[in-house]
Amino acid sequence: MRSIILSTVARAMLPILIMFSLFLLWRGHNEPGGGFTGGLVAAAGVILFSLAYSPRAARRVVRVDLKTLTGFGLLMAAGSGTVAVFAGKPFLTGVWWKLAGPQGSTIELGTPFFFDLGVYLVVIGVTLSILFSKAEEEERP
């Protein structure tokens, strides 16, 4: 079911969806969004691409091994929690920094963001491994 329209759209949509998912992730702490939603949107983008081309091509686009991605995400979520331990607070307590933003504004960055980033990566990793392994099965004669 290779179609030129689908391929073109998928190729165009992939970066947009990834950007959108990162946007969702970043603003998730203050507006609707977050790691779960962002991860699912990113995964959907890649899946769209894999349906248009092939799972193998999609895996090439992802570049990273999905098990590694999942593991890295888990590690990041758990690791963000240990920052508080070094600051003498209970595991997973949020620790925040104030960074100077453009034009004199300040950006608040905290360990919960990195936790959410971990969630984001895990969701992408798991969703893609599930659908890729299924789709690759499909590809085989």
Binding site: L40, T127, E137
Partner: peptide, 20 residues
């Protein structure tokens, strides 16, 4: 519910794999 939705998906995928 949010986490339940995502985990529900994973469980469903697992069940489908099992069925296959």
């Amino acid at each position: 519910i949010l986490t339940a939705i995502v985990i529900g998906f994973a469980v469903l995928a697992f069940a489908l794999a099992l069925v296959k």
